[in-house]
Every structure is written in C-alpha cells, then in structure tokens.
C-alpha cells in the first residue's frame, strides 16, 4: 500500500512540476487563515440567529439565568407531551442546575433508548442559525444525534456572526481539534422520498434551543 502512496505522489509531482512556480509557500498560506467572502447582513446577530433558527424548523426561547433552565425545559416537555427524562451533557454548567423534582436527569453519553437529550453549545452562528458542538468530556457527540428531541443551551455571548469565528475561537483555545465538530442547523430531515421534506430521518425530530442571556459566573 505504501507503494501506491509513492506512485500517487510521483504522478502528482510530475504534473505539478510542469505548472508554474509556487508563489506563496503553503506554510504561509496555512498560517494566514485568510477569510474568504462573507455574506453581508445588517441585523443584530442575536436577532438574526433567532430568525434563522426558526426558518429551519427548530424552536427557540430565551431565559435570563441558568436557574430558569429547569422550569423552561419542564414547560417545553409538557407542551410537547415529552416524558420528563433527560440525558444531559456532563458539562460544568449543566451539572450545577438544580432540577425540579418532576424531571429525572442523567449525565452521560446517549444510548439507543434515550428520548430527550440536553446539550451545551460551544458557539452559535448567526449567519445560518447553526449551533456548534465540539466533542469532549463534557460534550458527547451521540447526544446530538441519538434522541427524538434535542434541547441545546447556548450562551448569548457565544453567538457569533460567521462560521469563521468558530475557527478563531478554537485556535485561541490553543488546544488540538476535538474529534468531532458539529454544525447543527435545525432538526434532522430528509427529502429522499419524492423531494418531500420530512423531519426526523435518523437524528432528532425536534430541536429546541434555549438562549441563556446572562453569562454564568466562572
């Protein structure tokens, strides 16, 4: 198999030696992190985020403090007749929540029988109404895809204008990339049957986003 590697690279080398001189070294190019064309919009980013989220068939609400989360989730679950059982991401913030007694909560990765999960977004993207979730010990990926209902909390100050802002954030954090970075925009859907859009193909049928307005104490 290493043979194929050599062969492929020798073919590529042959072809590229005939093309013109390289102007920028790839090192320079890679470290410049130059942003490309960004679609311009004038709305306030939170407003934009909300309207984009709604346009992709997700629901969204805001709460003032993390202490309001339990009530908000309980209300949401009652409203859709969802069994008040949550599997939540073991994030520092979510683990601090004092849940009302009606809701049972487990902090772990998802398994096949979980109906509703609660996650914590790494960032939000106003351009497209996307949530960004990064896998890690506080954020198992399966929570995003296994359940019927996914509720995701996003701090208001983590809503950014563009996808590119996520890249800067990740670089600033200085850590290596997480195994999986998910941009989630609305619930799961398919149009594979006669071009008709149907929600809930394999992933969540419902996506509910809760904006947390205050930034929690560090």
């Amino acid at each position: 198999m290493t043979n194929s590697r050599r062969e492929i690279f020798s073919r590529l080398q042959q072809a590229s030696s005939k093309t013109e001189q390289k102007t920028v070294t790839i090192k320079e190019y890679l470290s410049a992190h130059k942003r490309g064309v960004l679609p311009v919009y004038s709305e306030n980013i939170v407003k934009r985020f909300i309207s984009k989220v709604e346009s992709v068939a997700a629901t969204i609400e805001s709460i003032k403090n993390i202490t309001d989360l339990s009530t908000a989730i309980y209300k949401y679950m009652s409203c859709y007749n969802i069994e008040p059982k949550l599997v939540a991401a073991p994030s520092e913030l979510l683990k601090q929540v004092k849940w009302q007694k009606e809701i049972t909560v487990e902090y772990r990765a998802a398994d096949a029988k979980d109906i509703t999960t609660l996650t914590m977004a790494y960032a939000g993207i106003a351009e497209t109404g996307s949530l960004v979730l990064c896998s890690g010990k506080e954020s198992p990926t399966t929570l995003n895809f296994m359940p019927d209902n996914n509720i995701c909390v996003i701090q208001k100050n983590k809503i950014y204008p563009y996808m590119e802002d996520t890249w800067d954030l990740l670089r600033k954090a200085g850590e290596t990339m997480p195994r999986s970075i998910n941009f989630i925009t609305g619930p799961s859907r398919t149009a594979d049957i006669e071009q008709t859009i149907q929600l809930g193909a394999h992933g969540p049928r419902r996506l509910h986003i809760i904006i947390l307005e205050s930034s929690p104490p560090r």
């Binding site: 351009e127 497209t128 999986s180 941009f183 989630i184 925009t185």
Partner: peptide, 30 residues
C-alpha cells in the same frame, strides 16, 4: 444555506471522550 449537519471529524476518540470510534482511517483514492 447550510445543511442540517455539517461535521468535521478529526481522528478517533480522545482519552477523555465519552463516545466516538477507537480507530480512524482515511482511504484516499486517485
């Protein structure tokens, strides 16, 4: 504007990850 899911995979699960594959391979075709 963007699909429901756009995902960037970077290798297998990390030591502290709670889920994800243990090994990760990329096969590149010419």
């Amino acid at each position: 504007e963007i699909t429901s899911y756009t995902t960037f995979f970077n290798g297998p699960k990390r030591n502290t990850d709670l889920d994800g594959p243990e090994s990760f391979h990329v096969v590149l075709l010419d």
